[in-house]
């Protein structure tokens, strides 16, 4: 299975000729250039590429954090261009989770309250018990009442992952979630993501600069100068594995 398309299911993300150009001084930067892709429910897709290749911009386009200069972004079969701010916000609040390179926890809230924070913008508040469960899952059951300043960088990153999952999202967008962490923590985070994908069937789009991490996904895309291609090495490895 080279392209894990699930028959009969509509793609959860569909990009058609999507470009994001912006002006930097007098030069036009083509951060994302005519990208088309389809991602189906339950996929674990990794995107790698050099810094500045447009990975983060692509992820932001999918999450509706920025709008494309050309092309069509469909998420959950909604064309984002036709939605207003509150509709896109509601989509993010109810169905999409974000993890970023920086944890950016609110320093005056405990780990538990940081995890409950997304409930503020969703229909349903995040129950204390569920937030505690999530923290337990990321291995921080001892730290739920600690403030961010009392946590290590890796612990903060794990709190931010728990926070991203607080609203039980169907789609998790992760932008270098392990970028600042040591190797051990990096693998811990990755195994959590795999666990999530396998057991909760959460669709994951993972942006990373580390090609080693990419092999854990069921699809590996490479970004180069705003363009997106399937990874050649990854395809080869898959073919070899299939024998």
């Amino acid at each position: 299975m080279t392209a894990p398309e699930i028959q009969g299911k509509a793609p959860i993300i569909q990009l058609e000729g999507v470009s994001k150009h912006y002006l930097q001084g007098t030069q036009t930067v083509r951060a994302v250039d005519a990208v088309s892709m389809q991602i189906f429910p339950g996929n674990f897709v990794s995107i790698t590429g050099r810094s500045g290749s447009g990975k983060t911009t692509l992820l932001s386009l999918v999450g509706g954090l920025t709008s494309p200069t050309a092309g069509q972004v469909n998420v959950f079969e909604h064309p984002l261009q036709s939605l207003d701010d509150s509709a896109i916000s509601a989509l993010r609040a109810e169905r999409i989770g974000f993890v970023f390179q920086f944890a950016s926890l609110i320093p005056t809230l405990t780990a538990l309250d940081n995890v409950r924070l997304p409930g503020l913008f969703a229909e349903q508040p995040v129950e204390q018990s569920y937030a505690a469960e999530l923290l337990d899952w990321v291995g921080l059951s001892e730290k739920i009442n600690n403030y961010p300043a009392e946590l290590s960088g890796g612990q903060q990153a794990r709190v931010s992952l728990a926070r991203a999952l607080a609203n039980r999202p169907e789609l998790l967008l992760a932008d270098e979630p392990t970028g600042n962490l040591d190797v051990d923590t990096e693998w811990e985070m990755l195994s959590l993501l795999r666990d999530l994908n396998l057991n909760q069937n959460t669709t994951i789009l993972l942006v990373t600069h580390n090609p080693e991490l990419a092999q854990y996904g069921d699809r590996h895309l490479v970004m180069q100068s705003g363009g997106l291609t399937e990874s050649y090495q990854w395809l080869q490895a898959q073919v070899a594995a299939d024998g």
Binding site: A103, P148, A149
Partner: peptide, 10 residues
């Protein structure tokens, strides 16, 4: 009370 400071790792 517990110290609260404004320096988290970003």
């Amino acid at each position: 009370e517990p110290e609260i400071s404004d320096h988290t790792i970003s």
